[in-house]
Design a binder for these strands. Structure first.
Lengths: 336, 336
DNA sequence: TTGAAAGCGCTACCAG
DNA sequence: CTGGTAGCGCTTTCAA
């Protein structure tokens, strides 16, 4: 593969000049530009990004760390990052497979080896302290979907508790009185925050969420089905169901209908996330829109800004997002 | 950030020795290893992958070029590549946003700049010749979801026509006689191949596909809805519907039911791809399983092999995949 | 078993 | 406006 030296030699100029035309450097004669461009085309010369990164100490990649690409939620996140990366002519360096703190750390290390100075991290396992320490090594580090007080200006997160409240308010406005909830059994903060917000709002309105009408399961279709069966098995009456995420909600609806309940006529169901699925389900799912793509775009811009050392970041800025109610067809007025 | 020189100095050895312990090189004394390892840990030294790539001329990344991450089909593809990459301790370098031949070319160029020698390409716009020429520059180039005769040993593709045939056979076995089809309006080969296979099989069985019962649309939910309305508007009778992909099929089912037809009782619907969606829809979608993840894994392994120059690739090997019928709930016996 | 040194391809500085 | 050159961080001979 041709190098800058080859180009210089054939064009009869110095490598310095070639470098200038490659980078649109100042003070180059039109003649040189043309000559060099011609040779570069002839040789189909492509500059070596590694060599470049080595000397400039700038990588033109933005690193992304997420658990799994097949989850539509994370795909949207990656897509958001990708949009701004492409716009800046940078590329996505993707690290996945995060199950444990070790694998999260490993994924991050690979990015550091590449001297990736812009990174968007979705980390649920690494400790606050580890993440805070990482900040020294990676100037453009931004956390998404997580909040850490000491580095709050690097966090782009969603108010899960508020999401629970909004769901409760919606159901209350539809005159529901008998509530149930399906939560996730995963050991992260999100489920408990959502549930907490939901319960608090119900309580403020003078209602109570029966502990026997709270079930937990894997955050997927099947988890929703199983949890719903348990709910039904309790024999207790409920007309409104708040579910941890859309996949579980769709599983829940399916099980409810199999058992003779109509949604929303008999039971209203509300999900969380607003992934693609929710628009394809029947009835179309009422859910809380998690603006993950928008947040990813914000996070990437922030990371880019932070990585740019000239630009002293404003440490007082905050990036909290509030989920938005997406009213579709799976909830309705309780007119019993 | 600490460099190899820092480590060498503090450990009281030469950079060559440090390099040896980093790479588990031969002939290093235990004492040196320990000394160096300690210093590296103290400095939390991380080797610079760019410098490394520069001298070894090997990148430890695998490049992936796909149109869009939010499409679950491509997400699965990327996930497949990611699995083998991670297993080999390599990372995904992702290029997206492919709408035109130019943007596809651009995406590939970025990968070449990074001297990425292993790449999995999903290209629909670039010409055969362009792709064939690329082969010289990128030893580990593999095409997925495309077949080019001259570089057949680098192609991992699906027999779309056979998929159409299988769909037809399934519907015929269920005693259907009145067929219809929704295809994609996108200008790529896949839709016409699927349709062709479908028609051919019907013809062989002595049936005919009424040209007025073939509609085209955007390959998404809405496209399926609109196309179905047109089908219905024709006033012609049909009991079986073969749809280009799952998203369109779900849109079709929704429109059919809104118009008083039950699926599958009145009309059987069969999709294509078997994306996540199809398992979440009601009725669960009968579809043709496109083993894209498995194909992506195969493609990546092949690319890795091809990139490894020692290993002379076997140019006679072929990688054709056949879609598999996934019988679920949206098709049934036509007992009218 | 170790070290010195050349050089990967490029940018950036300094002279001219 | 142009060229010479040092050096980015690392691997890899070649000698010792």
């Amino acid at each position: 593969m041709a190098t800058i030296k080859d180009v210089a030699r054939l064009a009869g100029v110095s490598v310095a000049s070639v470098s200038r035309v490659i980078n649109n450097g100042p003070k180059v004669s039109k003649k040189t530009i043309e000559k060099v461009n011609k040779i570069m085309a002839d040789l189909s010369y492509t500059p070596n990004a590694n060599a470049r990164a080595l000397v400039t100490k700038k990588s033109t990649t933005v690193g992304v760390v997420i658990p799994d690409l097949t989850d539509p939620f994370f795909a949207s996140l990656a897509h958001g990052v990708d949009q701004v990366a492409r716009q800046k002519n940078m590329q996505l360096l993707l690290s996945t497979g995060l199950v444990t703190a070790e694998s999260e750390q490993q994924a991050i290390n690979l990015l550091i080896e590449r001297r990736c100075d812009v990174m968007v991290l979705h980390s649920k396992k690494l400790s606050d302290d580890t993440l805070i320490a990482l900040t020294d090594k990676v100037p453009g580090l931004v956390l998404i979907d997580r909040y850490i007080e000491q580095i709050a200006h690097r966090c782009v997160w969603l108010d899960n508790s508020e999401g629970g409240k909004i769901a409760a308010r919606h159901l209350l406005a539809l005159k529901h009185k008998d509530f149930s909830c399906i939560s996730s059994s995963y050991k992260i903060d999100d489920p408990s925050l959502r549930l907490q917000g939901f319960q608090n709002e119900l309580n403020s309105a003078g209602f109570n969420l029966d502990q026997e009408l709270i079930e937990y399961g894997e955050p997927n279709l099947q988890g929703g089905e199983i949890a719903t069966q348990k709910l039904l098995a309790s024999g207790k009456k409920f007309t409104a169901l708040f579910v941890y995420n859309d996949a579980m909600a769709i599983g829940a609806i399916s099980t409810l209908e199999d058992n003779g309940y109509r949604v929303p006529t008999d039971i209203s169901v509300i999900g969380f996330d607003d992934v693609l699925l929710s628009r394809y389900s029947r009835p179309k799912l009422t859910t809380l829109h998690y603006p993950i793509e928008e947040m990813a775009i914000q996070a990437t811009n922030l990371a880019l800004e932070l990585a740019n050392k000239n630009n002293k970041a404003d440490k007082t800025k905050r990036f909290k997002y509030i989920p938005r109610l997406k009213k579709r067809e799976s909830t309705s007025l309780n007119d019993k």
